[in-house]
C-alpha cells in the first residue's frame, strides 16, 4: 500500500470511529449532564447541552428512599449468587464435555445445552412464573432469580468453559497423575489454574447479564426483593418523570460493572498457557 493510500485509509478509519463514538457516547453524555441538572432544567422545551447550575446533591437525594439502596444490594446479591452458581456448574459440566465427551452425552448434548440460550426468553416467562410460584422459595426472593438466571447463564458458562478446557493441554493433567496426584487433585492444581483467565471472563459475562436483567425481575420480584432495574422506572410518577434522579441512579448502577471490568481486565487477557509445550 502506498503512503498516500495508507493515510487515506487511516483517515477514513478515524472518521468512522469518530462517528461511532458520537453515536455511542452521546447517550452517556446526556445521562451524565441530566444527572446534575435541576428538575426544572430537565424539562425545558429547548434543552441545554451543559447544566446551567450543577446539582451534585442529586446523587445523595436518590438515596432518600432507603428502598433504592436496598435495590442495588438485592441486585448485587442476585448477580453474584448467580455468577458463582453458574461458574461452579458450568466449570464442572464444561470439564466433563471437554474430557469425557462420550460419557457426558457428546456434541449433541453440549449443543442442546447451548441452544437453551438461544430461544426468546419471553417464551418461558409465564410457565417459569407458575413453576417458581409452586416452589418453596416462591418468586419474590433472591433465590428465585439466582436459580432462574441459571437458565441463561449456565449454558453460556458450560459452553465457554468446555472450549477453554479443550484448549488446556491434556498432557499437563497426565503429568500430574504421574507425579502422583489423583484426578481431582490434578484438576484443582493444574487444570483449573490454566482456565482461570477464561473463568474470569465467563464470570464477568454472567454477572453483567444477571445485573442488567429486567424482564424476569419485573414479573418475579417486587416487594420483598427489588432489583435496581425495576426501581429505575419508578422515578416516573403519573405524567411526571424525575429525570435527574433517574439518571443519577442509573449512573450509580452502571458503576459496579464498569469497575468490575477495569479491575479484572488483565485476567481476561489469555496467555497463561503460552510456553506450556515446546517452543
Amino acid at each position: 500500500m502506498s503512503e498516500k493510500n495508507y493515510k487515506l485509509v487511516k483517515g477514513l478509519l478515524l472518521l468512522f470511529v469518530g462517528i461511532w463514538l458520537c453515536f455511542t457516547l452521546f447517550p452517556l453524555y446526556w445521562q451524565i449532564i441530566t444527572a446534575f441538572k435541576s428538575p426544572a432544567e430537565t424539562n425545558l422545551t429547548v434543552p441545554t447541552f451543559w447544566p446551567t447550575e450543577w446539582h451534585p446533591e442529586n446523587f445523595v437525594s436518590v438515596f432518600a428512599d432507603p428502598g433504592n439502596s436496598k435495590a442495588l444490594l438485592d441486585s448485587f446479591i442476585i448477580a453474584t449468587g448467580n455468577t458463582l452458581a453458574s461458574l461452579v456448574l458450568g466449570t464442572l459440566a464444561g470439564y466433563a464435555f471437554a474430557r469425557f465427551p462420550k460419557q457426558a452425552g457428546g456434541e449433541n448434548m453440549a449443543f442442546w445445552i447451548l441452544s437453551n440460550r438461544m430461544f426468546p426468553p419471553v417464551a418461558i416467562l409465564i410457565p417459569m412464573f407458575f413453576l417458581f410460584d409452586a416452589m418453596p422459595w416462591g418468586t419474590d426472593s433472591h433465590l428465585s432469580l439466582i436459580i432462574l438466571y441459571l437458565v441463561f447463564n449456565m449454558p453460556l458458562a458450560t459452553w465457554l468453559m468446555m472450549v477453554f478446557f479443550r484448549d488446556a493441554p491434556r498432557e499437563l493433567e497426565e503429568a500430574a497423575y504421574l507425579d502422583g496426584f489423583t484426578p481431582l487433585q490434578a484438576f484443582w492444581r493444574v487444570t483449573l489454574p490454566l482456565v482461570l483467565p477464561g473463568m474470569v471472563s465467563v464470570g464477568i459475562l454472567c454477572w453483567i447479564f444477571a445485573w442488567n436483567e429486567y424482564l424476569f425481575a419485573n414479573l418475579f420480584v417486587g416487594s420483598a426483593v427489588r432489583t435496581f432495574t425495576i426501581v429505575i422506572p419508578t422515578f416516573t410518577h403519573g405524567s411526571q418523570t424525575l429525570w435527574n434522579l433517574q439518571m443519577a441512579f442509573s449512573l450509580i448502577a452502571m458503576a459496579p460493572p464498569v469497575m468490575l471490568f477495569i479491575v479484572l481486565r488483565r485476567y481476561m487477557v489469555r496467555g497463561l498457557s503460552l510456553g506450556v509445550v515446546k517452543g
Binding site: 493441554p169 498432557e171 499437563l172 497426565e174 503429568a175 500430574a176 497423575y177 504421574l178 507425579d179 502422583g180 496426584f181 489423583t182 484426578p183 493444574v190 489454574p193 490454566l194 497463561l272 498457557s273 503460552l274 510456553g275 506450556v276 509445550v277 515446546k278
Partner: peptide, 20 residues
C-alpha cells in the same frame, strides 16, 4: 493400577511443564 498409584516417572515429548 491408575497412573497415580504406579511408581513410574515419565517425561513427555512436549515437556508438559505446568505453566503457572
Amino acid at each position: 493400577l491408575p497412573p497415580y498409584r504406579r511408581r513410574v516417572a515419565m517425561t513427555f515429548e512436549s515437556y508438559a511443564l505446568y505453566p503457572h
